[in-house]
């Protein structure tokens, strides 16, 4: 379902995903992922089984966005936890 080399087209698209902090553990740092057209970021998060309680920031092409955003081909998504300081 998610190999960088998999063919695209016919309702499929490639998006670039980067995971930050604890999200990387047991997953990957960055990867191209094949998704169906119309996939929302929240579906991607579900697919990656990220712990939702840690999800702090979503960047889409460098800008903050929400998990309901629909992805487009070649989008770049960064998923980050957020920790408050002290």
């Amino acid at each position: 379902m998610s190999s960088a080399q998999a063919p695209c087209g016919r309702g499929l698209m490639l998006v670039h995903v980067k995971l930050v902090g604890l999200f990387k553990t047991g997953r990957f740092v960055q990867q191209d992922i094949i998704c169906r057209d119309g996939t929302k970021i929240e579906e991607l998060i579900e697919r990656l089984e990220l712990p939702l309680q840690h999800l702090g920031i979503i960047l889409l092409n460098g800008l903050h966005t929400s998990s309901e955003t629909v992805l487009k081909p070649k989008d770049s998504v960064v998923l980050m936890p957020f920790v408050d300081g002290g």
Partner: peptide, 24 residues
């Protein structure tokens, strides 16, 4: 607080974890 709790308990690992996010 879940973000501040230890990694071993499924937390975010304390305030130290801010490094990774801010570096992005």
């Amino acid at each position: 607080s879940v973000r501040i709790q230890p990694l071993s308990r499924g937390g975010g690992g304390g305030t130290w974890a801010a490094y990774d996010v801010l570096q992005e």
